[in-house]
């Protein structure tokens, strides 16, 4: 079977535009999107809408309390979560909750990798003292969203590309050969469809190729470095069996030296324990 990557690319994008094969967004999301856009809505009104949905509230609070955001205080109400995470992040967590439900059930290795990168991105972002570090953690959480989408919505193609990787092909090249685009582009494409802020989209789009950034080079560099460090530490699993390439530009962009990398890794280690217990708790609930 010969695939024309350019043709396939069009076909994939068409399917993505219609969100075919993806879990439908919870009804509360539609309402929230309208409310967030309406300047007259107060945060309390938004919190009220979310709180009416018990399932979503539980999920949001659990994510807000998990170690990848690392808030020292316990987040016990939606209003508190909104204050700490910001309405953008809260919206994203609600929108992606059904996708992450699938991922921790079907590919716990990728789930662990994603939350590991979220935690590491947050640690790096805090160190650099850049604004809205919880957005960077969320970009880390979503950086491999495209892989989840490949697995859920393009299951046949996904099998083929895994086969190519097992035969020794570079994972990004394998995706481009089978689907016409890679997981970074797929993830960013869906995030654009969902109206997620540009800062997060660019960080996800460029996490393997920093050249793709326009405005948010620093953000993309953080995710690129966090992705490498989590692989290097051996937390979670992705199609990369050995460490992925690291663009040494990140040290210049982020102005980080080796002693600082050491501190980041030493700070990350205890967080990884919390993440592991968090994942085990989710697993137990599935039984």
């Amino acid at each position: 079977m010969i695939i024309d990557p350019a043709e396939k690319r069009k076909e994939v994008k068409k399917k993505l535009r219609k969100l075919e094969g993806l879990p439908t967004l919870p009804p509360v999301v539609q309402k929230l999107i309208l409310m967030v856009e309406d300047e007259r809505t107060s945060l309390n009104q938004i919190a009220e809408v979310i709180e009416k949905d018990q399932v979503i509230t539980t999920k949001v609070l659990r994510l807000a309390n998990s170690a990848f955001y690392g808030f020292p205080k316990k987040v016990s109400t939606v209003t508190q979560a909104m204050m700490l995470l910001g309405i953008n992040v809260l919206k994203i967590l609600i929108m992606t909750s059904s996708i992450f439900d699938i991922i921790h059930k079907e590919d716990v290795g990728l789930w662990e990798h994603s939350i590991g990168v979220a935690a590491c991105s947050k640690i790096i972002a805090e160190r650099l003292e850049i604004k809205e570090t919880q957005e960077i953690a969320t970009a880390g959480l979503l950086h491999d969203l495209g892989r989840v989408i490949e697995k859920v919505a393009f299951a046949e193609d996904y099998k083929n590309l895994i086969k190519l990787i097992q035969e020794g092909k570079d994972p990004l090249e394998a995706e481009k050969a089978v689907l016409g685009l890679d997981h970074a582009e797929i993830g960013a494409f869906i995030m654009t469809q969902w109206n997620i802020p540009e800062r997060l989209i660019e960080a996800v789009l460029a996490h393997h190729n920093l050249q793709l950034t326009k405005k948010y080079k620093q953000e993309a560099a953080i995710i690129h470095l966090a992705n490498f460090l989590v692989h290097a530490r051996g937390y979670g699993e992705t199609p990369y069996k050995s460490v992925p390439p690291l663009n040494s530009e990140v040290f210049k962009i982020l102005k980080l030296s080796f002693p600082e990398i050491k501190e980041i890794l030493f700070n990350l280690e205890p967080r990884l324990y919390e993440l592991k217990f968090f994942t085990e708790e989710l697993k137990r609930e599935l039984v």
Binding site: F228, L229, A232, F258, I261, L265, F266
Partner: peptide, 11 residues
Amino acid sequence: LLQIKEIIKEL
């Protein structure tokens, strides 16, 4: 990359 590997070993 090898320097990062050494850091992880130390860790």
